[in-house]
Write a protein that binds this DNA or RNA. Structure first.
Length: 263
DNA sequence: GACGATGTTGGCAC
DNA sequence: GGTGCCAACATCGT
């Protein structure tokens, strides 16, 4: 589920829990917890949620008087407020008002409780919506890797995933196998604008619900109806009418228009 | 029932 | 610093 627009939507849907106290935390599945269950529960008990923020694809709860609760949704993770428990409800937070649960059928996501943000979070690159144009152009021009792989690399820029990498490259007219250091400046500037456009439109649509993504209130997004290439293999390109192609780049399904996107 | 694909990251070999 | 491959896991479509 979770790329920048979906995570942003979840965070916005959680805004109202700021100020609430955590009464208890139950970790049912060790796999999705980074750390020890008893220690993590003990740490959380009695702390207050100060604010909920997005950091790339991570959801960060800043706690009072100190500490963090970090959630990464992986492929199928969900944070749900006051929702019935399922066999995939792996973490249950009892709050002063309401119950927040972490549900994740594939268990690729992670929950972590810590005093300071860990390296795996702080080492990430600038946020895809925060980076400025000049910095972005410089970063791309230094890279010899293929653009699709570069956009997926969270240490380059954080927040993009498979859907939005494909959609932004299409809008910028860049082939997924194009190499950053060989792109013209104007082309990189167009990509920068495409990233802002696509992400902001997707946030306005409350994300893409490809299979079962929902926000913390159980609401689906609608940006999947506006995808131009992602999972449109064989369908006509909205610009030129030629069929959209699918290939594998960096082990990820990659959708593009061979006519509109040049190397 | 088998097989392949699915939005993620991390580790390993080279 | 790259790339390629595999791993984790459950579900869904063919």
């Amino acid at each position: 589920m979770p790329e920048l627009p979906e995570v942003e939507t979840v965070v916005r849907s959680l805004k109202s829990i700021a100020g609430r106290k955590i009464l208890n935390a139950e970790f049912r599945k060790p796999r999705v917890l980074q750390g020890d269950a008893d220690q993590s529960a003990e740490f959380l008990r009695g702390r207050k949620i100060r604010v909920v923020e997005r950091y790339g694809k991570f959801i960060v709860f800043r706690l009072a008087p100190s500490g963090f609760l970090i959630v990464h949704l992986g492929m199928t993770g969900k944070l749900l407020m006051d929702s019935p428990l399922t066999k995939h409800s792996h973490v249950i937070f009892t709050l002063a008002r309401g119950v927040l649960q972490y549900e994740d059928s594939r268990q690729f996501g992670r929950v972590e409780v810590c005093e300071e943000l860990p390296k795996r979070v702080t080492k990430l690159g600038p946020d895809a919506l925060d980076i400025d144009l000049a910095t972005f152009v410089d970063l791309v021009r230094k890279r010899k890797t293929r653009m699709k792989a570069l956009l997926l690399n969270q240490e380059f820029v954080r927040g993009l995933g498979n859907i939005y990498a494909d959609e932004t490259l299409f809008r910028a007219g860049i082939h997924p196998l194009a190499v950053g250091s060989r792109l013209k400046r104007a082309r990189i500037e167009r990509l920068y604008e495409a990233i802002r456009e696509v992400l902001n439109e997707a946030i306005a649509s409350k994300g893409s619900s490809i299979s079962d993504y929902v926000d913390s209130d159980g609401n689906r997004g609608s940006f999947q109806d506006h995808h131009r290439v992602y999972q449109r293999t064989g369908k006509p390109c909205v610009v030129c009418g030629k069929p959209i192609k699918r290939t594998l780049v960096a082990q990820r399904g990659t959708h593009f228009c061979a006519t509109c996107q040049k190397r």
